[in-house]
Write a protein that binds this DNA or RNA. Structure first.
Length: 261
DNA sequence: GCGACAG
DNA sequence: ATCTTGTCGC
């Protein structure tokens, strides 16, 4: 994929804020009605001292379970990258810490997924421009933020049953939902990133939750990220197939010795 | 002024 | 985010 927008990343917090305020105007909120068949997910894990980050981008082809209508991952193509982290973690500026590591991975993908799931927030952000919104705008694709905790907004606790949800309201606006993705488990904070709205975001994320608290695709990239952090060995581009063949255009991007450092 | 604060 | 054993609940 090729970014539609380009801007510096090694910036001060003040400049980062200006970029967020400027780019937030490009966020488009609308129903995402197209059936999701190709889904992407990203995540980054770190070493204890924050010196290195392990970024992962997964492209997943999807099938729908006949019985429950939930999404099942049919095939996956995984891209990973180990990088030194420069930008510190500053609440509401996570994009500037993680996106620089993810950019090289997106470059390797030559197709646009129907939606991108992100471990972080979308518009449920002080300036309505969290990590998911930022990535969605950069690549002009639908994106959804699936945070494990709250950054901003007020809400009431959703019922304990999976599928229960309550509104996440920030400054009088509904910026997302608090979604119970698994019975009796802490809820997820789902907010649209780009080319999606709150309702569609909640519907899609719930369909991605099969047996665990986290949406399957995010849980997958999260596991891979932590796995390679421990091992820190083998090729940085791997392929995993579970059945059938890849949709046209998806087979190409796999190469060996692709991305390291 | 003080507490809160995605990963 | 990461460091960590056992432990309580579904």
């Amino acid at each position: 994929m090729e970014a539609v927008i380009s801007h510096p990343w090694n910036v001060t917090i003040q400049k980062a804020k200006e970029i967020q305020l400027s780019l937030s105007k490009r966020v488009l909120l609308k129903p995402l009605l197209k059936k999701v068949l190709l889904l992407a997910a990203v995540d980054v894990s770190y070493t204890r001292w924050d010196k290195q980050g392990y970024a992962v981008l997964g492209i997943f082809s999807i099938r729908y379970d006949n019985s429950d209508g939930l999404i099942r991952i049919k095939e996956e193509v995984i891209y990973t990258r180990k990088d030194r982290v420069n930008f510190p973690y500053v609440p509401s500026y996570l994009s500037f810490r993680e996106i620089p590591m993810l950019l090289p991975l997106f470059e390797k993908v030559d197709i646009k997924p129907d939606v991108l799931l992100v471990d972080g927030v979308g518009i449920a952000h002080p300036r309505r421009f969290g990590l998911a919104a930022h990535l969605g705008v950069l690549y002009d694709i639908p994106s959804i933020g699936c945070a494990k905790s709250r950054l901003v907004g007020m809400y009431e606790e959703p019922a304990v049953k999976k599928g229960s949800l309550t509104k996440l309201v920030f400054k009088g606006e509904e910026v997302g939902v608090v979604l119970r993705s698994k019975d009796n488990c802490k809820p997820l904070f789902v907010s649209p990133g780009n080319k999606c709205n709150v309702g569609s975001a909640a519907r899609i994320v719930l369909k991605c939750c099969s047996k665990y608290r986290l949406a399957d695709p995010i849980r997958r990239v999260d596991a891979i990220s932590k796995e390679i952090r421990k091992g820190d060995n083998r090729s940085s581009v791997s392929r995993h197939l579970t059945a059938g063949s890849l949709p046209c255009g998806m087979a190409k991007p796999i190469q060996k010795g692709g991305s390291k450092q």
